[in-house]
Amino acid sequence: MSGPLLYGLAAAALIGLGLHGVLAHAAPLRRVLAFNLVGAGVFLLFGVGARRGAAAGLPGDPVPQALVITGIVVAFAATALAMALIRRLAILRAAAAGTPEEGAAPAAAPPRETR
């Protein structure tokens, strides 16, 4: 089996596992993690296409590689937004329950020296 095909199959596996994770898990953090797995699989698929499109002395087609770089940054932004939502929700829940959340409640953080 050729290298790209192997990675292509790994990408398919990542996509399947990730999709199942997103659909089956109820905890938001795991869902976001699983979404990232699907994303990694999809990016890898672009990479396989790029590798197979190697030409003109390049190790791979630069267009899909550039798309993946854009995609990775977008996926990071998505993860960040999701994490911010999750943390905010945790703070509100903790406030509603009347117990300050460890590491989440800002007031609990010790004052820091500034140099």
Partner: peptide, 22 residues
Amino acid sequence: AAGVAVIVAGAPDPAPSLAAAA
């Protein structure tokens, strides 16, 4: 996943590419 695997296995190799144009 199975569909993607089938597609990857059957995809053209060498693939159409914009490397030369780039």
